[in-house]
Design a binder for these strands. Sequence first.
DNA 1: ATACTATATTGGTATAGACAACTAGACAAT
DNA 2: ATTGTCTAGTTGTCTATACCAATATAGTAT
Lengths: 245, 245
Amino acid sequence: MSKTLNKNYPLPMYYQLKELLREQIAAGEWQVGDMVSSERELSEQHNISRMTARQALKELTTEGLLYRVQGKGTFVAEPKIEQKLTRLTSFSEDMGTRGFDSGGRVLRLELISPSTLVCRALQITPDRQIVLLERLRLAEGEPIALEICHLYFNNVDKLLNENFEDHSLYNILRQQYKILPTRAEQQVEASLCSQREQHLLNIKEGSPVLRNRRVAFSQWERPFEYTESVYRADRYVFQVELGTA
Amino acid sequence: MSKTLNKNYPLPMYYQLKELLREQIAAGEWQVGDMVSSERELSEQHNISRMTARQALKELTTEGLLYRVQGKGTFVAEPKIEQKLTRLTSFSEDMGTRGFDSGGRVLRLELISPSTLVCRALQITPDRQIVLLERLRLAEGEPIALEICHLYFNNVDKLLNENFEDHSLYNILRQQYKILPTRAEQQVEASLCSQREQHLLNIKEGSPVLRNRRVAFSQWERPFEYTESVYRADRYVFQVELGTA
DNA sequence: ATACTATATTGGTATAGACAACTAGACAAT
DNA sequence: ATTGTCTAGTTGTCTATACCAATATAGTAT
């Protein structure tokens, strides 16, 4: 019994158990794919009925944090948002090449003062310092997108020592900084490329591009990332699912 | 007891009840906002325990078909997809004008033979006839998008008599044809406008546009709509939410 | 080795009942 | 008029129990 739940206190038992499980998973007690305690184990450990433990597990399942297999157990699921966000960029490499996405040349990686736009997006004051990360994304060796990330959280300056050419940003955030992306708001629009973009993306003057602005939120509903991306229109299609997801 | 559930049959009771409720709602037995039977009513009507009825209601709630208010009851929710799809176009009219969206001039409305592309999208054979509906969407009197819908379902030809200038397509489909949009796949890309689009949208030659392809599915997982839209890039931003759905 | 069998464990379904929290309306007291 | 109180009806939480269905494992028979 690692941490007793508070009977007869404002929050329902199943809810307290949900929070506890969430914490334990965030703390790395179980990794993605690991089996968490079974319903019967939880009910004995916390002195609650199996149906109550079950409710907690079931709700965490519909929230996408866990998945269940009859006869086997309940397991920690792959984070949903990362799937969706990477599925976006991975749509760039549908032209034959498999795997080695997440590549890209780092153009800038530095500590800067945020613009007012970025301050609003990240909900911070202008006196904070943020990390700017600019990358050129490649597919089959060809440039396909220009991406400018603005990042802010505790100890964000440590990011300056990370290697973004070999590791994905989100993996680093999750593993080193305990930041779990859980939600994102994104806007997409079309426009023509600037001269700088034209050169970096290796396209003709006046070519159309897809412009992408994204604010990503952590498990604590804090915005930690504001990213502007520019995609070559001739190599990139933005895919959206509405309804089920 | 309108329709008895089949005890000891392959499908669980709560699942049968879910399906029954879905049918009753689709049949218009309850309208959006109406209160459906209470848990105790359902448990008495169908001779099941309250918890079983509760499971059906709760799952339909997480699926977005119902919503519940403690102390009041369980109610029919606004269809989710329509919210999302209309939120897209309604983003066009964020520039002051409220309300009178869904307007637009009908340019074509006729029965045609589908192209192979449309056949694949709608999962039909080329011998079927589909309805083509081309509309110019306006905001503040200005053209903002060109939209070409391809529609196929039973009695699709009746659509030729509908008035699309005053009523929304999805409202007509739901009320007259019992077709509930439940899911859509959508692709967005950027490109330059064609000469025809340039004239209709009243933009300059070589202007960038957002191109949008959408396949929408009914409650029976049948694709009933394939739509290609072209949006003026200077007046339209595509908004996406990732994660919370 | 392969196939079967028994058993234990897991989640899935279902029941019956209890009490809490909340809503809305009726009605009385102020 | 406002406030308080009661009541009936609703969903929310929780317990205790039982059995079913799918899976994993160890042991056994072939």
